[in-house]
Design a protein around this nucleic acid. Structure first.
Length: 260
DNA sequence: ATGGCAAAGACACTTTGA
């Protein structure tokens, strides 16, 4: 079973790119982030025609997440628990049949948090604390699950080509990295790192300054697997070739293959 | 020391992102 995540940077502007990649990759479950669309504006008919069920948690103008899947989910949850006043569309979770059990997949768009020293950075850290609490609750069920998405965290210096350029950035702050480590330390497996020792595993290249051409990327899109999901992990990879397509997102898909 | 991309919204500029 192929489970993927992709920050699409505007699903309406990226529809042809998305359909081309779905046709090429044939993933079973896809978490999208930054759909930048309300639910009614999502190009549902075109994606259903490509053979995918669509669940969205949209918002006007920015943010917004979605789940595409070959089979319809048995259940869907919208919003990360822990703060009922949070109105930003950053989390959607579905449950699908998986062997004789179920697989839960969350598509998450973690706050950017820039600039540091502001309410935006506080919001990022609070959101990460909520995610850790929610992951703890899911782990207690001892079921397979995957928390995939744009974490907006560069976990380690080897996850960025030029670490010195991001030292003051919310994506690479010690507090952001520590919160990511705490999440992993609950027992979640970073699927990409589990499958490769390569030093240039990037999922994002800025549109500016020829970042793709110079390979000035970083790794901020992650697939975190529960122990019961990680034991099914066959392979994980980054579809970096998509960054060279016409009208690309600044992020590329991350794909995990789970046996079963 | 940035904002040189890009998308979306209400409008030919601002907001947001990383």
């Amino acid at each position: 079973m192929l489970v993927a995540t992709w920050n699409i940077n505007g699903v309406k502007a990226r529809l042809e790119t998305l359909l081309a990649w779905l046709g090429e990759r044939q993933p079973d479950i896809v978490g999208l982030q930054e759909i930048k669309s309300v639910d009614e504006g999502f190009p549902r008919a075109e994606i259903e025609a490509a053979g995918y069920h669509v669940e969205t948690a949209g918002q006007k103008g920015f943010n917004g997440v979605a789940l595409l899947s070959r089979l319809p989910p048995r259940e869907v949850r919208r919003g990360l628990p822990g703060d009922a006043s949070d109105e930003q569309a950053r989390y959607i979770e579905g449950v699908w049949p998986f062997g004789g059990r179920t697989l839960r997949v969350a598509s998450l768009y973690l706050p950017n948090g820039n600039p540091i020293g502001t309410e935006k950075f506080d919001y990022k850290l609070r959101w990460m604390a909520r995610l850790e609490t929610h992951a703890q609750a899911l782990l207690a069920d001892e079921e397979p699950f995957a928390l995939v998405g744009d974490y907006n965290v560069i976990p380690m210096p080897e996850d960025i080509r030029r670490p010195e350029t991001m030292l003051g950035d919310a994506l690479f702050q010690p507090e952001s990295r520590a919160a990511f480590r705490r999440l992993a330390a609950l027992g979640l497996t970073d699927a990409i790192r589990a499958c490769s020792d390569a030093s240039d595993l990037y999922t994002f290249w800025d549109y500016q300054d020829g970042a793709w051409r110079k390979n000035h990327g970083f790794r901020i899109d992650h697939a975190m697997l529960s122990p019961e999901a990680a034991r099914h992990l066959r392979s994980a990879g980054i579809d970096s070739h998509v960054r060279a397509w016409e009208k690309p997102s600044d992020h590329v898909p991350v794909v995990v293959d789970l046996a079963g």
